[in-house]
């Protein structure tokens, strides 16, 4: 009979553990991060010019593009990226990406913190090279 108590206690502990995500978020609103586009980026979006790739692709793939850009610049000394629409870009985080997206704290960090991602871009690059 004492076994049954132990089993129920164990089961209760197990259920408390597996429902962790439910009770840890109790009473919290699950707001997705709101991104603020820097003026230059906003202008590019409003004019329909857009980013290097379409929005959905950028959201999912930007890290891979940065990785490829770095590889291509550092290893192969190729600096020109031709976008899908034939437009040419300088493969540079500081000079191309951050030129428009000059607000790391309100743009990059919002999603990265939300998804618990710690990219090592900023180990070398400063976040706002032009000091705007």
């Amino acid at each position: 009979m004492s076994d049954k108590k132990i089993i129920i206690a164990g089961l209760a502990i197990f259920f408390v553990l597996i429902t962790f995500p439910f009770w840890i978020n109790m009473g919290k609103a699950a707001n997705a991060p709101e991104l603020i586009l820097a003026p230059t980026a906003q202008a590019a979006m409003d004019s329909g010019e857009g980013c290097v790739l379409p929005l959905d692709e950028m959201r999912a793939n930007h890290m891979q593009i940065l990785d490829l850009w770095r590889h291509s610049v550092v290893r192969n000394a190729e600096r020109i990226y031709v976008g899908a629409d034939g437009k040419e870009y300088n493969m540079s985080l500081s000079n191309t990406c951050l030129d428009c997206h000059s607000n790391k704290a309100d743009f990059c960090d919002r999603c990265h913190n939300y998804a618990s991602v710690t990219p090592y871009c900023w180990d070398c690059h400063i976040d706002n090279p032009k000091g705007e």
Binding site: P21, A29, A32, R59, A60, C111, Y114, A115
Partner: peptide, 16 residues
């Protein structure tokens, strides 16, 4: 690749 922020938005919606 997947849009992680959107995936988390879905997951967070479920648990809240």
């Amino acid at each position: 690749k997947v849009n992680v922020a959107a995936a988390k938005e879905l997951a967070m919606g479920l648990v809240t």
